Simulated assay, not measured.
Amino acid sequence: MAKNKTIRVESFDIVLYSQNDADFISLTDMARYRDKERTNYIIQNWLRTRNAIDFCGLWEQINNPDFKRIEFDAFRNESGSNSFTLTPQRWIESTNAIGIVSKSGRYGGTFAHRDIAFEFASWISPEFKLYLITEFQRLKADENDRLKLEWNLQRTLAKVNYHIHTDAIKENIIPSELTKQQISFVYASEADMLNVALFGTTAQEWRVLNPEKEGNIRDYAEIEQLVVLSNMESINAVLIRQGLSQSERLIQLNSIAITQMKSLLKNKQLKKL
């Protein structure tokens, strides 16, 4: 729901609201600058003019694909006649206009998109229009300052959350030292041996523990784990050529995985500071 805001122009409070990234300003409040009692009369007097109809019609053609051109042309042809009258409600209902809005209730009245409202302000008084634009720009500048403050706050919170997340990563993805049973076990494939060195479990064991997940353990690895895994594959090839047994290679690879994971997480943390 759009929230009303107020700016003060020449001792008059002007209500406005934002909706779908568009600002609407109260023509009713603006009309009080000319006549505090007969605001509807002031708005109708302006809207019936040829210039107002031309401007509002052009705005609708640019911004409103559902604008009814035929009805607009009828109003345009009638404008200028002494007997011609046009209320905001009639304009909206007949042409399907969206640039002018009629609202009921405590904070109701006739509102218009800021482009149209500024045009109405020109008709009221050039001086009034200048003050209106000045106060409107001041309001938007204040809003932008608040958005910047909120963005900085969110950025700070993101940094804090990053450190919390990093601590969680340290607890969950830095490999643990292998047990004697894991070291002595003969693994069916080199891939499983690498999985145990880095993740602490074989692919089959992971699938048993995670029956609801598709894919394999490596599909759910963090980017740091994948980097270390790639390094381990190269190192394992060297160790094989050196003639080390699987258990000996497993011990070394597990130690390398622990060291590299700690190093990667530490460097990542430093870059975020």
Rank of each mutant, 00 (worst) to 15 (best):
M1Y: 08
A2W: 01
K5P: 00
T6L: 06
S11H: 13
S11W: 10
D13F: 00
V15M: 09
L16Y: 14
L16H: 15
Y17L: 02
N20A: 06
I25T: 05
L27G: 00
D29Q: 04
R32W: 03
T39F: 04
N40L: 01
Y41F: 10
N45V: 00
T49P: 01
R50Q: 10
R50V: 03
A52V: 02
C56K: 03
L58Q: 14
L58S: 15
W59H: 08
Q61A: 09
D66G: 10
K68Y: 07
I70A: 12
I70L: 08
D73Y: 11
A74T: 14
F75N: 08
F75P: 06
N77P: 02
N77C: 04
E78N: 08
E78G: 09
E78A: 12
G80C: 01
L86S: 00
P88N: 08
P88W: 09
Q89S: 14
R90E: 13
S94A: 14
A97W: 10
S104H: 10
G105N: 06
G108Q: 04
T110H: 02
H113P: 02
D115H: 11
A117C: 05
F120T: 02
A121V: 00
F128D: 04
K129W: 00
K129L: 11
K129T: 05
E135M: 05
A141H: 14
N144C: 05
N144W: 13
N144M: 13
D145C: 07
L147H: 10
N152Y: 11
N152P: 03
L153C: 11
Q154F: 10
R155L: 12
L157C: 03
L157R: 11
A158I: 08
H163K: 13
H165Q: 13
H165E: 15
A168T: 10
K170L: 05
E171S: 12
E171W: 07
N172P: 00
I174Q: 09
P175M: 01
E177K: 14
T179S: 15
K180C: 03
Q182M: 10
Q182A: 07
S184E: 15
F185C: 08
V186F: 07
Y187R: 13
S189P: 06
E190I: 09
E190L: 08
M193S: 11
L194I: 03
L198W: 03
G200C: 06
T201G: 04
T202K: 09
E205Y: 07
E205W: 04
R207T: 10
L209W: 13
P211C: 04
E212V: 08
K213I: 01
G215W: 01
G215R: 09
N216E: 09
I217T: 07
A221E: 04
E224W: 08
V227E: 12
V227A: 14
L229Q: 06
N231T: 10
M232H: 03
I235K: 12
A237C: 02
V238N: 13
V238K: 14
L239K: 07
I240L: 11
S245R: 09
R249T: 01
L253P: 03
L253D: 08
N254Y: 08
A257H: 07
M261T: 06
K262N: 14
L265K: 10
K268W: 11
Q269P: 02
L270P: 00
K271E: 15
L273H: 12
